[in-house]
């Protein structure tokens, strides 16, 4: 284990770290697209691909990135600004939520939306702001 760790410290480790970041980004974009396609046409994706397997692959890559980052002492700051990725995530979640609400009656959509917004606001106030 120590031998592997030694090999992964330095250029090879940084190279793997960078390439795995690229792979992770592509997998997350694909995952989002596949989830939207599955939501629009149930069975379209799941007939050919297991979401569980894809989730596991993403977590394995994430674990490898964290490990490589740790042994190579790679630090980066989380910048508190709205990036394109943040915008993309908001649109993605909005599409998923709207799609899942479509089959409810109007009054049910109203109740679920108000309850969800209130819950998110409560969580934000209690955990993030404090």
């Amino acid at each position: 284990m120590d031998k592997i760790k030694k090999i992964l410290i330095g250029d090879l480790g940084i190279f793997l770290y960078k390439i795995l970041n690229d792979i992770l980004l592509l997998l997350i974009i694909s995952y989002a697209m596949l989830l939207i396609s599955e939501g629009a046409m149930p069975g379209l994706v799941s007939a050919h691909l297991s979401f569980t397997r894809l989730t596991l692959i993403i977590f394995v890559i994430l674990g490898m990135i964290i490990y490589l980052g740790k042994i190579n002492e790679i630090n980066f700051k989380i910048e508190n600004k709205k990036t394109a990725l943040f915008g993309g995530l908001v649109i993605f979640y909005a599409v998923l939520i709207i799609n899942s609400l479509l089959k409810f009656a109007w009054w049910e959509i109203g109740v679920i939306t108000i309850a969800s917004v209130a819950l998110l606001y409560y969580l934000y106030k209690n955990f993030i702001e404090s």
Partner: peptide
């Protein structure tokens, strides 16, 4: 952004 900030030598 982290990918662009990390420097590798020319070969890598």
């Amino acid at each position: 952004p982290v990918n662009n900030e990390l420097q590798l030598n020319e070969h890598w």
